[in-house]
Nucleic acid binder design. Structure first.
Length: 474
RNA sequence: GGCGGCAUAGCCAAGUGGGAAGGCAGAGGACUGCAAAUCCUUCAUCCUCGGUUCAAAUCCGAGUGCCGCCUCCA
């Protein structure tokens, strides 16, 4: 089955064919580490990390790079405000990023390069552009001359003349053209700087991604992804500088996700309508936040609300429950080996069908909401089977469990392996025994009290026809 | 002004020509000592108006409302 992805460059869904068979090189624009990330920042990280998981599931070897922007105006301003150095600020928020990333169940990229650690490569790239006549130096500021790059605007569908008209930015009159952008910025007093052929300064914003993408992944890569707001100018400029320098296509598939809205407006730090991931982590589980993000198609807008997160919690729990139900049944005595009845053969077929549908959905431009719906479809089927009183087939239970661990766990990352409920402490064991005795005596009051007490200790107790079942509150 | 997106149930969200998926919430029922979990049943004139078609949520046209990018931004 072929994976199709919507390529911003062609504005069409295209079949995904990697440059090198069996291997995928992808670069995700990471955070500028001047503050905590918010849920809008987290969306592309979750989406494209999930895409990476899916590519791996499909058997690709994925090389995934995600950068940290650790030098720019915002970094400098915030460092000044906090009275620390830019480097200290970066260090702090890189650590904080990883705390949030772990909460979101994000796997690490193969490399997390930082702009300031690649000044040599950046300078070399600018020099190359200068040699080829695409860059010009004015008093220590180096600009990219957009008019020299004929494909400028191909990603964002803009043409140069319109861009000129629409320019709202305060224009640096020294530039040859209003839309020329900075490759290297001369440092002002008090700002961090690095020596360069053009004097002391620092890299422009766009050049770092070009330099690091090329360094770790090569001149042409398969996938470059980020939020839609990066299409212009960031990614447009990356294309210009990279392709001007190498003469090669920079990226085969450009992927962009839609925004997260809060109060009907794009969530953004400058508007101040943000919800930090750190804030959410105090009230919701990472699984639920992940589910929330994956519950809409990645290119659609997604509205943030507390209610949405609560619904996501409940939905995740339904999937966790089906796994719990399966595991509970597997521990029962009435388990059958091998022999399958017709009904059971049918269930296995339905499981395969659901798996296939799940894959088809993701193959169709990574349609996670549809994929998720198939997890629920099969949940109904398997729960129905589990609710019957007959002996259960071990094979059916195992395969079903596997289905969820593979798709909900490994691929989507919306469930984690649970702490084993078997490692109960002695106190809880005692309470369980006590309650069992009370129930035998039909002392419901005491029995209910103990159930309440267990709940306070983080264990939810459920009575089933096959004995008590325990569930941990996370 | 240029480029682009969105509008489907109480809430979320798929579907882009022929059955309106799925989740959350709600209602009723089954099971249970009670809960919980689970199962069964139930829950949509697809923003408006025209048009094309045997057939439209889906295609075309007009309109309404909301939003984004063109400035740092995921």
């Amino acid at each position: 089955m072929a994976l199709k992805l919507y390529n911003t460059l062609s504005q069409k869904k295209e079949e995904f064919i990697p440059l090198k068979k069996g291997e995928v090189k992808m670069y995700i624009c990471g955070p500028t580490v001047y503050n905590f990330i918010h849920i809008g920042n987290a969306r592309p990280f979750v989406i494209f990390e999930t895409l990476k998981r899916y590519l791996e599931y499909k058997g690709y070897k994925v090389k995934w790079v995600q950068n940290f922007t650790d030098i720019d105006d915002k970094m400098i301003n915030n460092a000044q405000k906090l009275k620390i150095t830019v480097a200290e600020l970066a260090e702090r928020f890189i650590q904080e990023y990883f705390v949030d990333a772990d909460f979101l169940n994000l796997q690490r990229a193969e490399v997390h390069p930082r702009a300031t650690e690649h000044i040599t490569e950046i300078i070399a790239l600018i020099e190359k552009l200068e040699r080829k006549g695409y860059a010009y130096n004015i008093e220590g500021d180096v600009f990219f001359e957009v008019n020299k790059f004929k494909d400028y605007g191909k990603l964002s569908g803009q043409n140069i003349d319109e861009l000129r008209k629409g320019a709202r930015i305060e224009v640096d009159l020294r530039k040859k053209n209003t839309i020329d952008f900075a490759l290297w910025k001369k440092s002002k007093p008090g700002e961090p700087f690095w020596p360069s052929p053009w004097g002391e300064g620092r890299p422009g914003w766009h050049i770092e991604c070009s330099a690091m993408s090329m360094k770790y992944l090569g001149e042409t890569i398969d996938i470059h992804a980020g939020g839609s707001d990066l299409i212009f100018p960031h990614h447009e400029n990356e294309i210009a500088q990279s392709e001007a320098a190498t003469g090669q296509p920079f990226v085969k598939y450009w992927l962009h996700n839609g925004y997260i809205f809060l109060d009907n407006q794009k969530m953004s730090k400058s508007l101040g309508n943000i919800m930090k991931v750190r804030e959410l982590s105090k009230r919701f589980r990472g699984e639920a936040v992940r589910y929330f993000i994956l519950s809409a198609h990645y290119r659609s807008p997604l509205n943030f609300s507390e209610e949405q997160l609560q619904q996501a919690e409940a939905s995740v729990q339904r999937i966790e429950n089906v796994i719990l139900n399966l595991e509970h049944s597997l521990k029962q005595s009435k388990i059958k080996e091998d022999i399958l009845e017709d009904q059971e053969k049918q269930i296995l077929e339905q499981k395969n069908e659901s798996a296939q549908q799940f894959i088809m959905a993701l193959d169709d431009d990574f349609n996670t909401p549809v994929a998720i719906s198939h997890l629920f479809n099969f949940a109904k089927i398997i729960n129905r089977y589990l609710a019957s009183n007959e002996g259960k087939s071990k094979l059916v239970l195992e395969e079903s469990k596997n289905f969820y661990y593979t798709f909900a766990g490994k691929v989507l990352g919306i469930i984690k392996e649970k702490k084993k409920t078997t490692d109960l402490n002695q106190e809880i064991e005692e309470l369980l025994k006590e309650r069992e005795q009370a129930r035998n005596k039909k002392d419901w009051k005491k029995s209910d009290q103990i159930r309440e007490e267990l709940k306070r200790k983080g264990v939810i107790l459920e009575d089933t026809p096959e004995g008590v079942r325990l569930r941990r509150i996370n």
